[in-house]
Design a protein around this nucleic acid. Structure first.
Length: 779
DNA sequence: TTAGGGTTTG
């Protein structure tokens, strides 16, 4: 089954009046418009898939509204018909968080018996419904993001030359012409939009909605739209698009290279990297096939007798008479001609008196007429506007000042005449604001910096230490795991014997190195036998920052074996993040079973992802493939463990080799297996210490290479686990209590082996502890 | 239902 990611962003909405909110049960009523609304709940129950009399598949689930647990009725029946029933029955399980969109509300015939909501929701593919299942929360990104998996086939998009009368389709198009939403003579706002696409066919759409916010947020010719469920009709021998039930739109900036961030009032929309690709392709097509006017005129550049679009800030407004309304605006530049001032009563002028006075030489008066008056009245002083097709009219000077320029927004909507409110996130508004303020107020976002945890100096309290000591004076604090039949050998004998040999000893730990235990942790390559320090968080951060410069390659978004989601951060850096979720059997898995690859993430983001997903692999885009970062960075993160590869012994292989593991029946994502397919020679975490052991006959320095057996602490986990750090310190305090005389030290039972190390100039015998572990009651 | 793009004019 195809998998589609859905992104829901909670937080600051682009629109000042967000209307497409999640629906709650209280407001769910038969006969009301629930277009573009969604209902989110937990699956309380699911019934077996069945067939209706006409052969239609039918599946019923019960969703509980978690936001409204106090209400007597907080659950509702969801009736799923057709192909969608089959898909849902396969995927949806009780306990899942689920979203239903495009539903029809009908009276529930079973409400009296089951005590659930008096209505039920009917969903089917034909009705344009969709059902999603939550796969993950992302709380770490600037906006709180939830990712859902769509339980239905993908949307299909129709090219503009393939449209047929009477159909409802999904389509993409580049805006060739538009009328910003205006108040129609009926009950709704209306927006006219003409689209073109690479088939070179035009489609004019007439869109209505009672809610201004539900219409596409088009700001300029060249913007790209995606329409879902638009109805195609023939009118005057041409195809025409009109709003249908469930119509939904996304609008994207059409500038090549601009971030692909959809503008929508809908807080729920499907988000796929395939679509990002489509947008980017359309941008490129439009750049060479569509004449898009350059930057809009500034007041300083206006000419008399022209029509132009102005991006500006509203400083004041006033009613003039029944059919006209005054807007006082500025764009920071000065009009080179004398401009008229529309006489209004001071009491009718709305706006900060001080600001109006301060900017009196930079503001211009724009008189708007007829159908624009209603919208003009509703504008907020201080908001940013784009006024389309303002007429600059030269008035002959019949006063002593001479001729002046007048600004009119005539009635009607010809030539896209109208007023649009731009959100503060709009790039042109950002530019204008910066210009108006001449100060950059945007503060940089400080990500909490993370450094690796050091684990020395964590002593437990003194009472614990005393009781441990008492126990240790009687029994050995270490025990043997093998070779119990061997007899003890005195250290003096060992020192006088040739190597290599193995011995059982009974000795005391006089001292050890390093005393700072975090220094004992190393990375070891079993192939070339090299040892290295564990890189700290700053090293990794540095590499991540370096790799974030490489923008994710759109060509590599979503492949047969992974689905991708991308973000652009809302801060100044506009950093691009891509997450590639590796699929199994064409499906995304539960987060705890999922391997993902991330591009452009920060240390904190990567770390957060590791807390939720089974495996995280930081990657970057090349021209043809994703690739691992520098091997100074971990090639894999699992939970709190960073896995590193040996720089000398690794020969990185293509990332797509991971797909072979993904194709296994139950991918276990073992680090060793991942390393193997990626051509990485994994480094192992190891504690390396030097124990000075004494037994009254002599002293031996013996090395401990402990992968886990001795301390029974996985070295890979110690950096992130405070408890393990304390445990290790406690163990060492028991083996070698600080400040004690030799007589008071506990006995250790150990196996040691001697070995020769020779180089050109000298020969030395070394000793290594093996098959020994700390006694059970010590750890 | 509204508007159905195409040069407005106070």
């Amino acid at each position: 089954m195809p998998v589609q990611l859905l992104k829901i962003i909670k937080g600051k909405s682009e629109s000042p009046l967000p209307s497409h909110l999640p629906e709650d049960l209280k407001h769910l009523q038969e006969g009301f418009d629930h277009t573009n609304k969604y209902f989110q709940g937990i699956v309380l129950l699911s019934y077996p898939l069945m067939k209706l009399e006409d052969g239609t598949d039918f599946f019923k689930i019960v969703l509980q509204d978690l936001n409204d647990l106090c209400s007597r009725i907080n659950s509702i029946n969801i009736l799923i018909y057709g192909k969608m029933a089959e898909d849902c029955a396969r995927v949806i399980r009780p306990g899942d968080t689920s979203i239903v969109t495009g539903f029809k509300v009908a009276k529930s015939p079973t409400a009296d018996e089951d005590g659930r909501h008096s209505c039920h929701l009917e969903v089917s593919e034909e009705a344009g419904s969709a059902i999603y299942v939550l796969i993950e929360f992302f709380l770490l990104f600037p906006n709180f993001i939830m990712l859902f998996q769509r339980v239905a086939p993908k949307y299909m998009y129709t090219s503009l030359d393939q449209l047929k009368d009477g159909t409802i389709v999904n389509l993409y198009g580049v805006v060739k012409f538009f009328k910003p939403p205006y108040v129609s003579k009926g009950t709704d706002y209306c927006s006219i939009i003409t689209l073109v696409d690479p088939s070179n066919v035009k489609l004019t759409c007439t869109l209505f909605n009672g809610n201004l916010d539900s219409l596409p947020k088009i700001y300029k010719v060249g913007d790209i739209v995606r329409f879902h469920r638009i109805k195609i009709r023939e009118y005057n021998g041409q195809m025409q698009g009109v709003t249908s039930m469930g119509f939904a739109s996304l609008t994207f900036d059409g500038t090549v290279g601009a971030p692909v961030v959809p503008r929508t009032s809908s807080k729920v929309y499907t988000f796929m990297d395939e679509e990002q690709k489509t947008i980017e392709e359309l941008r490129v097509w439009a750049a060479s096939n569509l004449s898009i006017s350059g930057p809009a005129a500034k007041l300083s550049g206006v000419q008399p007798m022209l029509f132009f679009d102005l991006t500006c800030q509203l400083v004041g407004k006033a009613k003039v008479d029944g059919s006209s309304f005054l807007l006082k605006v500025w764009d920071g530049t000065k009009c080179p001609y004398p401009t008229w001032k529309v006489p209004v009563e001071a009491r009718d002028l709305e706006g900060e008196k001080a600001v109006l006075h301060q900017l009196r030489n930079l503001t211009v008066d724009i008189l708007v007429y007829d159908n624009h008056v209603q919208l003009a009245k509703s504008l907020k002083v201080g908001s940013f506007l784009r006024i389309y097709s303002i007429h600059t009219k030269q008035a002959s000077g019949d006063d002593e000042v001479g001729s002046h320029i007048e600004f009119h927004l005539h009635g009607g909507t010809c030539y896209g005449r109208g007023i649009g409110v731009l959100p503060e996130s709009n790039p042109d508004v950002k530019e204008l604001k910066a210009f108006l303020e001449s100060v950059d107020l945007a503060g940089s976002q400080n990500m909490e910096s993370m450094s690796s945890v050091e684990f020395d100096g964590t002593f437990s309290n003194i009472t614990d230490l005393e009781s441990q000591l008492q126990r240790c004076q009687q029994l050995p604090v270490t025990v043997l795991t093998d070779h119990q039949d061997l007899n003890n050998t005195e250290l003096k004998t060992i020192l006088n014997s040739p190597a290599p040999q193995q011995y059982r000893i009974r000795a005391k730990l006089r001292t050890y190195k390093p005393q700072k235990l975090h220094q004992a942790l190393k990375l070891h390559c079993s192939k070339c036998n090299s040892l290295q320090e564990v890189p700290d968080g700053d090293d990794f951060d540095f590499i991540l920052q370096g790799s974030a410069v490489t923008v994710p390659n759109p060509e590599l978004q979503s492949a047969s074996w992974y689905d991708s989601a991308t973000w652009t951060t809302q801060d100044q850096k506009q950093r691009k993040i891509a997450i590639h979720f590796v699929k199994h059997d064409e499906m995304l898995q539960q987060p705890e079973d999922t391997l993902l690859m991330i591009e452009g993430g920060t240390l904190k983001e990567v770390w957060k992802l590791t807390q939720r997903f089974k495996c995280v692999i930081p990657v970057r885009s090349t021209e043809n493939d994703l690739e691992l970062l520098d091997l100074s960075a971990p090639f894999l993160l699992q939970g709190n463990i960073k896995y590193y590869g040996c720089k000398l012994c690794s020969t990185p292989k293509p990332i797509k080799n991971l797909s072979s593991i993904a194709a296994e029946q139950r991918p276990s994502w073992e680090p060793t297996e991942i390393a193997q397919v990626l051509g990485i020679e994994p480094l192992q975490y190891v504690f390396i210490m030097r124990f000075t052991l004494v037994d009254g006959t002599g002293a031996v320095n013996a090395y401990l290479f402990d992968y886990e057996k001795f301390f029974q602490i996985p070295p890979s986990e110690i950096l992130s686990n405070n408890f393990l750090q304390q445990k290790m310190q406690m163990t060492m305090n028991t083996l070698c209590p600080p400040g004690r005389k030799l007589d008071d030290l506990p006995w250790l039972e150990c196996f040691i082996k001697s070995y020769n190390v020779r180089d050109a100039t000298k020969h030395q015998v070394y000793y290594q502890i093996f098959d020994t572990t700390v006694a059970e009651d010590v750890v």
